[in-house]
């Protein structure tokens, strides 16, 4: 499943039409065998198998960290949140139901809920902050290290451009931001996103569409500069 997803992303980056591959990846998630594997892994964790739990953490931690980073724009917050997600997962492993969905989708739902809580807390803090410390565009901390093997893919875009895109993401409302991140960065299909956000597919599609348009409008002034640089 993971391999197929990766191939979908690299196809997207290479400029090819990524949807076919993404659909293949999406179908792989719907295959019952995948959930059976998840069930077995969770059962081993519940039986006290430390290696199984470590496998769960290693399998998903990078994806969850990336999701948290893209949503918050701060490496430290992303790290803390990713840790919270797994601590919460660990406590609630017993309530995982393989027939409802994959462990990956469940984990994404958990993460999304924590991210929204974090956003609301942050908003409350910003309301009480002195005015001069509030930056409307959100301040983006320096980018964490890109994963190995991906360097060639993103080399065309400089660090500055990546920060611009990240900053633009942070300017989206949380509803649009999460939808765009799950679709365009995490390569989930509409059905999965609908399951994660607990929304009808139509609403998910409309949010993704609006998010992309909004993002394009935010990025438009800097597009010329980026193209010139690339």
């Amino acid at each position: 499943m993971k391999l197929q997803r990766v191939s979908a992303r690299s196809a997207a980056r290479a400029g090819a039409v990524p949807r076919v591959q993404t659909l293949v990846a999406a179908r792989a998630i719907a295959v019952p065998g995948i959930n059976v594997q998840d069930r077995q892994l969770v059962d081993r964790c519940l039986a006290g198998d430390a290696a199984a739990w470590e496998e769960v953490v290693r399998l998903h931690s990078r994806r969850i960290y990336n999701l948290c980073y893209r949503f918050t724009g701060r490496p430290q917050d992303a790290e803390d949140l990713a840790q919270d997600v797994f601590v919460r997962l660990f406590r609630n492993l017993g309530s995982y139901r393989a027939e409802v969905g994959s462990l990956s989708t469940w984990l994404t739902t958990l993460t999304r809920n924590l991210l929204i809580d974090h956003y609301r807390r942050g908003r409350a803090d910003r309301m009480t902050d002195p005015i001069e410390t509030v930056t409307p565009e959100g301040d983006v901390a320096p980018l964490p290290v890109p994963a190995k093997g991906r360097a060639a893919d993103h080399a065309v875009w400089g660090r500055e451009v990546q920060e611009q895109v990240q900053r633009a993401l942070l300017r989206l409302s949380p509803e649009l931001r999460e939808a765009v991140i799950l679709r365009d960065l995490q390569d989930l299909d509409y059905k999965e996103i609908a399951a994660v956000l607990r929304l009808p597919e139509g609403t998910v599609k409309s949010r993704i569409n609006r998010g992309r348009i909004e993002l394009a409008r935010i990025l438009r002034p800097s597009l010329g500069i980026m193209e010139a640089k690339s």
Partner: peptide, 18 residues
């Protein structure tokens, strides 16, 4: 613009977790 924005989004690297 949307096409360009999507290209840029897709170009964001997968980050290494700490």
């Amino acid at each position: 613009s949307v096409a360009a924005a999507q290209m840029q989004l897709a170009s964001l690297p997968d980050l290494e977790a700490p």
